[in-house]
Design a binder for these strands. Structure first.
Lengths: 334, 334
DNA sequence: AAGGTAATTGTAAGCGCTTAAAAAAGTTAT
DNA sequence: ATAACTTTTTTAAGCGCTTACAATTACCTT
């Protein structure tokens, strides 16, 4: 049987409230007793029961993280960052992978509520009214990660997708490319799909290359789809010499396709990715990509949630973190 | 304020114990009242407080997962499998990433204990006596995943590393290779390092190729280290025509090194990986590799832990799951 | 030494739930 | 109609902890 506060009290020869005070406000207990209690705690390996405390404080010191796809390496970094922040803040972390399934997501929110998580980080997904209402009805505070809401007032941490995409495409233009395509996220159900597309458009307009605006093919998250999208893109526009991919995984799909068609990257076609996953540096060729501060995004999201939980609000409701173009081997001067 | 069982009782005009019974043994409550209670529950969106239940049942319906490196894609599949099993079994999952840090691991066990997780899956790490004792002292049941213990009696789920490695190397021999090297895990602190090395040795002996036994270089988990290890390996043995890598990430490191040296894969050198990560199919060239049933390993580990929790023991203490060689593009007939 | 104040400790209520035991309500047999 | 059961419901204790409040002890003053 796990020792309880009674066992400690008995061993130390004090009442349970004294033991409790030793743990919660040690200075209010006279030194002699305090050390006896501490000794008993040590000897019994006593640890307070989180259920009992939770019942009283109505807090679990646990945060929830909702991610759409654990197999996307992006989230490995998010998780690391968030977990480190949780350790620092004295919280535990409960991660739920929705596999982009609406029902799963909703039922995970229920699970979070039942387990009384103190707050949730909602990552990389659109905050549909349905979700917002559920979360609000459950009275669980939450923040958005790599997402934001225009409709509702919800704190968020993300990267400036439009600007980041713009810079990536601008880089391609500066490299001398004139026929530039894009592999984007399907705009439906996508948070970063539209802004990254807008960034592409802005760069094109600015560069006087508006004829490229239609050179866009779409995929949904996975390598294989990006591969097929690239096929469509190049079938329709064989003259393309550079492709902006809105995800590193897409860039890999694109490069694989080009490889299979014996088109050299970066020799004939330059490819720029997005995210700077760990894989971006392992792929052949190493990917030129727009780096997101992935770890930091996770870290900040947890901090922000904590701020929301402890102060009731948040200083910077919509926080943008810095991206950075990283030039490697998949792009080249035209 | 979240509604409590009292609110439901009041609304339904019954005592709280009736409400409780509606939830726990509905047949013991007469239909008329039962439906009134159910209605009240629905109307109030009532959900029992997990703290209160936990206090009584001494169960959290939460499992813990301890993994060494969330950035290793291997664990993404493990997590998916385990989470799906948890959903099926009515459990929540708490994941902790130790970053291979002993102190972190130990403190996560404390956190698990405090949060009263019902059991732990301990993945891909050696069960040191220190860990075993801590877990035992905390009285938390646990199972090993992609690991096992000869020293202690602990249920485990894994793949037959020795046999799998043996088959991979045998495949290379059958392809006609005679000068075969290996990029292995450092044997210290490694679970699968030794058996995979043994498999390599066995295949070599069987093939009468014992001169290869010393053609082994070691790395610890990461791409960059595998890259360097490959450099060592080829510096010492430039005649190698095939490399068995004990992880897909190593295979990528090896191939990257060879690429940088203008050595063609599979043209001049064949490379076989291990794991069959999702990336194995995205890399260029696609990796020939020994597939582990990653998702299933996670799933089974959770099931096994559940079996241990509910029955107190486990039918098959040391369970081996099937591996399978998958031939893709990184290997070729010599 | 008595009285007053401050510091320390103990008692008991209560967090939201389950469940054994007691009480109430409903059935059946006489 | 009443006794003797059976079924259903309520009462109350308790899970392990915190904390307001009461009780005790220690320490000053005069």
């Amino acid at each position: 049987m796990k020792p309880t506060i009674r066992d400690v009290a008995k061993m130390a020869g004090v009442s349970i409230s004294t033991v409790s005070r030793v743990m919660n406000s040690p200075e209010s207990v006279v030194e002699a007793k305090r050390s006896r209690v501490l000794e008993a705690i040590e000897k019994l390996q006593y640890q307070p029961n989180a259920f009992a405390r939770g019942l009283i404080y109505r807090k679990s010191f646990t945060l929830g993280l909702l991610i759409p796809d654990i197999e996307n390496m992006y989230f490995a970094g998010i998780i690391r960052g968030m977990q480190d922040a949780c350790v620092k803040l004295g919280y535990s972390l409960m991660i739920c992978n929705t596999d982009r399934d609406k029902d799963r997501l909703l039922s995970y929110i229920d699970a979070f509520r039942e387990k009384q998580v103190d707050g949730i980080v909602f990552a990389s997904d659109i905050l549909y009214p349905e979700y917002y209402e559920k979360l609000t009805a459950c009275r669980i505070p939450f923040v958005l990660l790599s997402s934001h809401s225009d409709e509702f007032e919800v704190p968020s941490v993300e990267v400036d997708d439009e600007e980041a995409a713009y810079e990536a495409v601008k880089f391609l233009i500066e490299l001398g490319h004139r026929e530039i395509g894009m592999i984007g996220f399907n705009h439906v159900n996508s948070v970063s799909g539209p802004p990254r597309y807008e960034g592409f458009i802005r760069a094109m307009k600015e560069g006087g290359l508006t004829h490229n605006i239609e050179k866009v093919a779409y995929a949904e998250h996975r390598f294989e789809q990006a591969y097929h999208a690239t096929h469509e893109l190049f079938s329709a526009h064989p003259d393309i010499t550079a492709v902006f991919c809105v995800a590193d995984e897409f860039a890999m799909g694109t490069i694989s396709y080009l490889k299979d068609r014996n088109i050299l990257v970066p020799g004939q076609v330059s490819v720029v990715g997005f995210d700077n996953l760990r894989m971006a540096n392992m792929f052949i060729p190493k990917l030129t990509t727009v780096a997101q501060p992935i770890y930091e995004l996770g870290y900040r999201a947890a901090e922000k949630l904590h701020e929301l939980l402890t102060t009731g609000s948040v200083k910077v409701p919509k926080e943008m973190m810095k991206h950075k173009l990283i030039v490697r081997e998949s792009s080249r001067q035209r």
